[in-house]
Amino acid sequence: MPRVKRTLVLTVLIACSCAVLLLQLRFLRRHVHKPHILNPAGQLTTGHGQWQTLKKFLELAQRHRMPLFLADVATLSHLTQDALQQHQGPPPPHQGPPPPHQGPLCSFLCSGRPVAAFALQASRWKYDAGFLLAAEQRGFELMEFRGEDPRLASFDSLSGEEIPLHFLFRLHGFVIQVVFLYERSGNYLWHGALRLKAGADRSFAPFTLLDYGRHAGAYDRPELVLTVLDGLDVRVPRNVSHFLAQQRHAHFLECRYREARGFLQLYPDDASPPALEFRRKAKALLHLAARALARIHVPFWISSGTCLGEPPPSPCRHPMTPDP
């Protein structure tokens, strides 16, 4: 009799173990090894991991009042004026089933590339180490790039001060680049080049795929609009085509201040009234030509003459665009 009871108990335990194992396998099949994620419309969603990373990053930036705007070339290239839906405040809650034409969850921001780019006008955000700490606490890895402030290069006593140029945030193999745009005296925005220092981790990001950093760049100050892309609030340039056209040609050449000072020491500036009047007329003519060509969207370069042969003591910009 005791042997029968032991056999019965053993049989019950084996049956319970098999039942638990079957339930675990069913759970894994449904939730863990699920190959795709469906959006509310029942359509397959692509880039869900990238979307989650972008959502986490944008929420963090908004919490720290970081006024980012989308500068990713691949994403902006897919945008048209019809796709931009400017709105004030958060979008209203959706009621009822989604329309049948609703696309995938991440059809714009998830371009399939392992990188995305945002830009930040540095004058609108005070450097906050708490933001970087919060990003690390949320799982992001950070690589920060700094460089000398070119706005102080013409002053020997102030040169050498470093400013942040680029942030790279990495999470689950996806890299988000933040480009700092600084206001320059010519009424334009400037960003510096991204240069890896000795000993830097060259495997941190696919640097050849980054949209910004191969060289310094200069841009007109873009007018931004707030829109909704893939369910996320994102600022984008109002004139996307103009911004992308500038990005393709925004190769900035910094003035050689040391050579300019040496030249002026050998050949002092002519401060006579005729010379001052000549320079005034020359600048007025250049600005007039630049404004006229800008109206018909023709880039304007200084291709020859003493403007190139004699580096001026103020920042240079190529191509030249008019002051507003």
Rank of each mutant, 00 (worst) to 15 (best):
F118S: 04
G147N: 08
K55Q: 15
P93V: 07
G130W: 10
L266M: 11
H251P: 01
L8G: 01
H94I: 09
E277I: 00
E183W: 11
Q43K: 14
R3D: 03
Y219K: 01
A41S: 14
P93M: 02
E310F: 12
Q177S: 13
P98H: 02
L105F: 01
Q86W: 00
P98I: 06
R235V: 04
P313V: 04
A74D: 05
R151T: 15
D233H: 08
V12E: 11
L196P: 07
I302Q: 02
L10A: 14
E59C: 09
F108V: 01
T208A: 11
H33M: 03
Q24M: 07
V12T: 06
S154N: 10
E141R: 13
R256H: 14
G96D: 06
L23G: 01
L276H: 08
F263H: 15
P312A: 09
F180Q: 09
H242T: 01
L194Q: 07
F108P: 04
R295F: 00
C106I: 01
T7A: 14
M143S: 13
R202A: 13
V234R: 08
Y257F: 15
G89P: 12
P67T: 05
Q102F: 10
P35V: 05
Q265H: 06
R202H: 08
G217C: 05
R146M: 12
V228Q: 15
W125N: 05
A271C: 09
V240G: 03
P322M: 01
Q121P: 00
P100A: 09
E59R: 11
C16H: 00
F155Q: 12
Q52A: 14
E144A: 14
R291A: 15
Q137C: 02
A117S: 15
L58G: 07
F300Q: 00
R202K: 09
R279W: 08
S157Y: 04
S157C: 00
L109K: 03
G160T: 11
P222C: 04
H33W: 11
F155L: 13
H287G: 08
A71V: 03
P319Y: 06
L226C: 05
D323C: 13
V9C: 05
C106Q: 06
Q95C: 00
C316N: 10
H48F: 02
L210W: 02
C255T: 13
C307R: 12
A19N: 05
R184C: 11
G103M: 04
K34D: 04
L171W: 07
C110F: 01
D201M: 06
S107E: 14
Q121Y: 00
V234P: 11
F278M: 13
S107A: 13
R170G: 01
A198S: 14
A119T: 02
S157G: 00
E259A: 15
R202V: 04
L266D: 05
D128E: 04
D220C: 02
P150I: 04
E259V: 08
Q24I: 07
Q62R: 13
L293F: 13
V228P: 00
R280D: 03
E148H: 11
L68R: 08
H172S: 08
D201Y: 11
L232N: 05
V73Y: 11
V12D: 01
A290L: 06
A290H: 06
I296Y: 06
R124S: 14
L38T: 03
S154Y: 08
I302P: 03
L22I: 12
P40R: 09
W51E: 03
D269Q: 12
S111Q: 04
A292S: 13
R258M: 00
Q81Y: 01
K283I: 11
R6C: 07
K197G: 15
A260C: 09
T11W: 09
R248F: 02
